[in-house]
Amino acid sequence: MAKINQQLIAKELGISRATVSRCFTNHPGINPKTRAKVFALASRMGYTHAEKREPAAHQRTRSTLAFGVLVCVDLPNFDRTGYGNPGQELLNGLSEVARVQNVRLDLHFVRPEDLHIDGPSYEKIISEGRKLWDGVVLIYPFPQSIVDELKSTFPVVSLVEQYGRTPLDCVDVDHHRGIERLVEHLHKQGHERIGFFTWRYPVEASWALRRYGAFVEMMTARGLVIDPADTINVSPREVLELPQAHARVRERIKAGTTAWVCAADHQAFDLLLDLKKHGVKVPQQVSVVGFDGLAPPRGALRLTTVEIPFHQIGVTGGKRLLDLINKRFDSEQHILLNCDLRKGETVAKPKKPRAKAKG
């Protein structure tokens, strides 16, 4: 097995060894996107660049700040998709701020199933991070217990995930505005029977419930009826695995539901594949919208969605953590960025039901 070093990282990414080295020393000439990709690959490969570069704790100067960046995801799921990678875009924005402010990023992937910071994927990095980190950035949903334990030790900023039970600084998208634009677009096309679809995740996805809450408000404001059978995986009392959830969508289409709001683009892409597999035509028979603004998989329809400014969220999150480090007990802030509707090929006017022939 090849030794994990900067040369191997450079080979995997198709860049020079010098470029990799400069990424780890905050060289101003390195593109933030390249820097973020190097950090992400180094963490996945287990290359401990921070330990090699950092002096002992008692020798450390305070001239350079360090952010611990924790990504809560099973590694194969971070960049295995055939569509856009939100996590990488968040890292790109964070890397941009770090380069300008001469901040070192110490990136680690942790497992969703670990519920405490003494768990297997946290134990080593947290014990070392306490000596080195000035603050922590969280990417993707974390168990509430982890959030509480980290916040007791570090200034913490969460990107695209709000935690209701813990006062925590967060930079997120305006879920309410995004769902409003999707429902308004469908309603203007003539849709009245609109469903809401989401998945169940290992860690509670509060963002999906937040979007569902906005969906209920927008539908109610327009006088549209929400059939409980058209809301899939929003209640813990009825959890459907993906095949069953897709089957429920097909049943409801037969029952007259003409459009579906998916809580995320990746959910919509999978739903579109299932509908195609079973001969349901989009948008001729049913309209589908998502939420994120990801590029579609090769050969897929362009999804009607709202675009989350992931890069700008990373930038804003980095700036907010710098503020917290300088003012440790500042009041918590939720910073919500705007999102824009992006029309695609998955929405059309609903077909009028055929009139029954007179006997």
Results as ranks from 00 to 15, higher is better:
345 E>F: 00
193 R>T: 01
248 R>W: 10
37 K>D: 09
312 Q>I: 08
275 L>C: 06
50 A>F: 11
189 Q>A: 12
75 L>R: 05
355 A>T: 14
40 A>V: 08
69 V>I: 00
61 T>Y: 04
23 C>Q: 02
303 L>P: 08
121 S>W: 00
123 E>Q: 12
39 F>C: 09
73 V>I: 15
128 E>S: 13
41 L>T: 01
295 A>E: 14
111 R>G: 04
12 E>T: 10
337 L>Y: 06
174 D>W: 05
331 S>W: 12
125 I>D: 12
175 H>V: 02
282 V>T: 03
342 R>M: 14
188 K>S: 03
59 Q>W: 11
96 E>V: 10
226 I>T: 07
227 D>Q: 13
288 V>Y: 00
328 R>S: 13
226 I>Q: 07
237 R>K: 15
296 P>Q: 05
75 L>N: 09
24 F>A: 09
193 R>C: 01
307 E>L: 14
358 K>T: 12
288 V>C: 02
322 L>E: 08
108 H>I: 01
218 M>H: 12
318 G>D: 06
185 H>L: 06
313 I>P: 03
12 E>L: 08
14 G>A: 06
48 T>E: 15
234 V>H: 10
108 H>F: 08
126 I>G: 03
238 E>T: 15
94 L>P: 00
325 I>G: 06
322 L>N: 11
336 L>E: 07
69 V>A: 03
354 R>T: 03
250 R>I: 00
17 R>W: 05
164 G>T: 09
217 E>V: 14
46 G>M: 06
65 L>K: 13
38 V>L: 11
110 V>Q: 00
90 L>I: 04
333 Q>V: 09
174 D>H: 11
213 G>P: 03
313 I>A: 04
159 L>C: 00
101 Q>C: 05
253 I>E: 01
334 H>K: 14
74 D>S: 12
347 V>H: 01
197 F>R: 02
272 L>N: 02
278 H>S: 07
91 L>V: 04
134 D>T: 07
197 F>I: 04
210 R>C: 02
327 K>I: 12
142 F>H: 14
205 A>T: 01
193 R>L: 05
163 Y>L: 01
237 R>G: 15
60 R>M: 12
196 F>N: 00
322 L>W: 04
62 R>S: 15
9 I>H: 01
160 V>G: 04
190 G>E: 01
12 E>M: 15
43 S>V: 05
98 A>E: 05
323 D>P: 01
102 N>H: 13
164 G>Y: 13
136 V>G: 04
106 D>V: 04
36 A>N: 09
23 C>V: 12
203 V>R: 02
114 D>M: 03
98 A>W: 11
219 M>G: 05
297 P>Y: 07
357 A>I: 08
230 D>Y: 06
159 L>A: 02
333 Q>S: 13
152 S>G: 10
229 A>Q: 15
287 S>T: 00
308 I>F: 11
96 E>S: 12
129 G>T: 08
320 R>C: 06
268 A>W: 02
288 V>F: 03
261 V>W: 03
15 I>Q: 06
232 I>F: 10
19 T>I: 09
241 E>S: 12
83 Y>S: 03
203 V>A: 03
146 I>T: 04
47 Y>G: 12
212 Y>K: 01
184 E>P: 02
50 A>E: 10
244 Q>K: 15
335 I>V: 15
14 G>E: 02
18 A>Q: 11
53 R>Q: 08
2 A>E: 15
175 H>Y: 00
139 I>D: 05
320 R>W: 10
317 G>H: 12
343 K>C: 03
98 A>N: 10
282 V>N: 01
144 Q>A: 11
